[in-house]
């Protein structure tokens, strides 16, 4: 995830129950782990370092103004040091975001009444017939009782995600859908929509998957899954034989998320294949 996206995610989360979050943070003694100023400072440090690294890389790569192996070695050492510092900062940022996730889970678990809303009359786009198919005994109870609000969002998410990873995509869809309906304001909602889309993709429900990836992109503008959703849309369009739309999706990844190295490289590879 890009630093911008991380920061945006953080800001979104801060807006959600900010008072409760701060109170709980203090109560739990986590203030030293994740505070707004910490994250902002980290981001500033990473930006500065990234700029320095880019500059050193340019100098080392171009060779201009560098004469002799000593200077080159010095540049390489500086580059390695800066990269190490960036990695450490990224590690701290990841840990803080993880702590924030945990904090949000605790807040939502402790305030289910305020977080829960009555189930919506219908899903945002009814799942295709058969998606609520056979359920295993272990999960059927949870998945078939949408009126129950005793489960916190993270409990529903945990079960749904486990079902997804076990390949029980039909069940996962109903569980993720339930989370989104019952807790539309949960910080897990956008991820739930994303994994619901993934489940549909695995079941080859391509159009439904597209609609849900679009929901992640447009409805949850600060979603941590936004960049991946653009990429996945490209893949779905490829499956549907819509090469033009696939190219457009991959290009959007490159335009909007230049710091998403992994996705950018994957998108470039896809684009080159589509050009062949």
């Amino acid at each position: 995830m890009s630093i911008d996206a991380r920061n945006q995610t953080f800001l979104m989360r801060r807006n959600f129950h900010v008072g409760g979050a701060l109170l709980l943070t203090l109560t739990l003694g986590l203030s030293s782990c994740a505070s707004p100023s910490d994250v902002s400072d980290l981001r500033a440090q990473m930006d500065t370092l990234s700029t320095k690294v880019a500059k050193v890389e340019r100098e080392a790569g171009g060779g201009a103004g560098v004469s002799g192996g000593t200077q080159l070695a010095d540049l390489e050492t500086r580059l390695d040091n800066q990269k190490l510092r960036i990695a450490r900062l990224r590690d701290r940022l990841e840990r803080m975001n993880h702590r924030l996730d945990q904090l949000m889970n605790r807040i939502e678990a402790q305030t289910p009444a305020s977080g829960a809303t009555p189930p919506a009359p219908s899903a945002p786009g009814t799942p295709p017939p058969g998606t609520a198919g056979a359920k295993t005994p272990a999960t059927a109870g949870a998945a078939m009782s949408p009126q129950t609000t005793s489960e916190s969002p993270d409990m529903i998410y945990h079960q749904a995600y486990a079902d997804y990873q076990a390949g029980h995509f039909d069940i996962a869809i109903s569980e993720f859908d339930r989370l989104v309906k019952e807790y539309p304001d949960s910080h897990l909602a956008s991820s739930a929509v994303f994994w619901e889309a993934q489940s549909h993709l695995n079941l080859k429900h391509y159009k439904r998957a597209l609609a849900l990836y679009d929901a992640v992109i447009h409805k949850y503008v600060d979603s941590p899954k936004k960049a991946t959703s653009y990429y996945k849309k490209g893949q779905v369009y490829e499956k549907l034989g819509n090469k033009k739309a696939a190219v457009k999706s991959y290009k959007r990844v490159l335009e909007l998320f230049p710091l998403e190295q992994q996705l950018d490289d994957l998108s470039k590879r896809r684009l080159s294949r589509l050009d062949e």
Partner: peptide, 18 residues
């Protein structure tokens, strides 16, 4: 070790969603 220390990551089997 992209974050400085060896850690476990997940990704989809197409390389996305890390």
């Amino acid at each position: 070790d992209r974050d400085g220390h060896p850690q476990i990551f997940l990704m989809d089997a197409d390389g996305s969603n890390v």
